[in-house]
Amino acid sequence: MSESKIRIGTAPDSWGVWFPNDPNQIPWERFLDEVQAAGYHWLELGPFGYLPTDAAQLADELAKRDLKLSAGTVFTGFHKGEEQWKRAWDQALDVAGLVSQLGVEHLVVIPDLWRSDATAEVLESRNLDNAEWKKLAAGHDKLGQALLEEYGIKQQFHSHADSHVGTYREVERFLQETDQAFTNLCLDTGHFAYYLGDNVKLMTAYPDRIGYLHLKQVEPNILADVLKNDMPFVEAVALGVMTEPGFEGVPELAPIIEKAAEINPDMFAIIEQDMYGCAIDFPFPIAQRTREHIFSCTQAARIR
């Protein structure tokens, strides 16, 4: 195994935060306190507007807890046509405009889902035709080039359950349709495993396209029911399909972290356990145990 190590962090998602404002979510000040107490140094911004959007205030709040940002997140729907550009760039102006002031070099980009992650409503066809694939790829390359030129930020595309890019073959096609100079992957290990994708196989086949990681596991017995019954992702999350690492979940994280360290020791691996709707006191001990599990199962992980 390589002696290289990658940076491990966490995200608001691991505290059940999906939206900028939700009275049932953990207050942002307590979230930051618990990230520090759980032993992390790096974290993602989460939904824009959850953490402070004033760069100076955010920098101060992070610094007094010895925390730093690894990435921000935006949402896109480029397969729908050119009118989606303004929507994506408006988000980028907010998110990249903020995080670039704090030295962030990555933007995680999540595609629109064909089935709502809030209501489970079917919004459109679950498959793209060839013309939609071309629109999707062209939109992401345009966004990636603009982010790089305007902010020095790299686009990292996140395949997702209930999206048009989820299976191994769909992710592979996305890579083949896009330009490595502007569009690479935030490989979410749980979302990729959700459709039975082999993370290490993809990383081995496309090492130069893996720019960022989200560390996550799925519970295989729950996943079997989800797939058999075509269950919406929001319902699958409520069942616990995204499970606490270190127990019965897949994929095994150590080989993925070690492969990432071989590819690029400066890569971030951000722990994300989808827990929207959980009680406020629930996530903190899980965050502690998850960090301890990762550092006990591999020597290819570092905090800073």
Rank of each mutant, 00 (worst) to 15 (best):
H79I: 01
F182V: 03
D94A: 10
W89R: 14
T178H: 09
S159V: 02
H140I: 05
D94K: 12
E172V: 14
E82W: 10
K134H: 11
G152M: 11
P111Y: 05
H158R: 04
P111N: 05
A131N: 14
E132C: 01
G103C: 14
N130E: 15
V122Q: 10
L67S: 01
S159A: 12
W133I: 04
Q176A: 12
E172P: 05
N184L: 09
G72A: 03
Q101I: 07
G190Q: 01
G166D: 03
V171Q: 07
R126N: 11
G190Y: 00
A118L: 13
Q145F: 12
R173Y: 08
L113H: 07
L93W: 11
I153M: 10
V122N: 06
R87E: 14
C186G: 02
D162H: 02
H164D: 04
E170L: 03
G197M: 01
V74R: 00
R173Q: 13
V104R: 02
L113F: 09
L107Q: 07
L147F: 14
F157T: 04
V99K: 07
W89S: 09
E105G: 13
G144V: 09
D141P: 10
T183E: 04
G72C: 04
A131H: 14
L185I: 04
L102K: 11
F192N: 00
V104N: 05
G77A: 10
V165F: 07
L69D: 06
Q155E: 15
W133N: 03
T178W: 08
P111D: 07
L148A: 15
K142Q: 15
S163T: 11
S159C: 05
L143S: 09
G144N: 09
D129V: 01
T189Q: 01
A120T: 00
W89A: 07
F192K: 00
K134R: 13
E105W: 09
K135D: 11
Q156Y: 07
Y194R: 00
Q91H: 08
V109K: 04
Q176T: 07
L147S: 12
L102F: 13
F174K: 04
L113C: 07
S100E: 15
E82R: 13
G152E: 12
W133V: 03
K154Q: 15
Q145C: 12
D117M: 00
E177Y: 10
F78E: 05
G97H: 08
G190W: 01
V104D: 05
T76K: 02
E124D: 13
V171Y: 09
D129A: 04
S159E: 11
G72M: 03
N130K: 12
A120L: 00
T119S: 08
Q180K: 14
T73N: 08
K154T: 14
T73S: 07
L147P: 15
D117Q: 00
R115P: 02
E170K: 02
D179H: 05
T183P: 06
N184Q: 15
G166I: 01
P111I: 02
Q145S: 14
I110L: 11
V108M: 08
T76F: 05
L113T: 11
G139W: 10
E121G: 00
